[in-house]
Design a protein around this nucleic acid. Structure first.
Lengths: 161, 161
DNA sequence: TATTGTTATACTCTATAACTATA
DNA sequence: TATAGTTATAGAGTATAACAATA
């Protein structure tokens, strides 16, 4: 049943992290699709929860997205009624991006979807194992200097078949 | 020092896995660049270690890469002297892709690079924590049905700045 | 002069489809 | 007729550069 010479990558925690992360991403994209949004939209909404009224440039800096791409993302979220561009109180060049009620509701649904998916993925772990896994991840993320809740490339799409 | 309303994603193990996986990927691409190869090349070489002489189609099936993309990858590896296309003994339509000595050597160096990088990333964990992390990842990968040592999208590149 | 948002252009990557030689 | 490898074409995605308004 076993491969005579097993692939050496399978024993590397770095590889396994990437492999599992990729699997989670594709699965989450699919889980979010019925809601009509992409993980990158959820990332924006989740961030705005704590920084409502941020300028597009501030969103760019925080989320690691180019400002020309940000234009399109805000367009999409605005068209869906999740956010609104308002006048920035301190800088007339900037737009203040504000969460609307529908946006908060969508963020809540998306996070619920995420939690449901996690129950499936981590279901075979004991509570203690799952807690240890989470603690380790948080420590590693802190070691690596990763910003909490942010990463630039929650983007497209499915692996080539 | 803390964000008044912290980003809720930071507490989700699924998100943290993806975030850390992305960080590892970008760091590994950079670590491999001086060797002149990309993680996807290492994936090919590591796989061929156990399946030398596989046809391109078999490589496609195993690694989840389209066959038109595989053509270019084999071209690159062949040009670099890491693999060689030979006649397939059983099917004259197919090419048998064989590892050359330089390819084995490059695989070895790449895996050494990976191990060095892992020492940096996981350096703050105790041996027990690191072992537990690895065991959990292996269990989760098995639960998800992921093929050992394989994933389709070890691809480009850096997050937009 | 630098910065914010925006638009236009070019480039890269990926996906689809066609072609050949075998099976 | 179907499959392995290859090539060509088209589409999506990303990055670079320019622009108008404001700092």
């Amino acid at each position: 049943m076993d491969d005579p010479t097993p692939n050496p990558l399978a024993k590397h925690p770095a590889f396994l992290t990437v492999q599992l992360g990729w699997h989670i991403t594709t699965q989450f994209i699919a889980a979010l699709a019925p809601l009509g949004i992409h993980p990158r939209h959820m990332g924006m909404l989740s961030f705005l929860l704590g920084r409502d009224g941020a300028s597009q440039q501030q969103l760019c800096d925080a989320l690691g997205i180019h400002r020309n791409v940000m234009v399109g993302m805000v367009d999409e979220l605005e068209k869906a009624g999740f956010v609104e561009r308002r006048r920035h109180p301190a800088d007339r060049r900037a737009h203040a991006v504000h969460l609307l009620a529908a946006g908060r509701e969508m963020q809540r649904k998306a996070e619920e979807t995420l939690s449901r998916m996690e129950d499936g993925i981590f279901g075979s772990l004991t509570a203690a194992e799952r807690a240890a896994y989470l603690a380790t991840l948080q420590q590693l993320a802190a070691d690596a200097g990763l910003s909490p809740g942010i990463h630039p490339a929650l983007r497209d799409s499915l692996p080539g078949s």
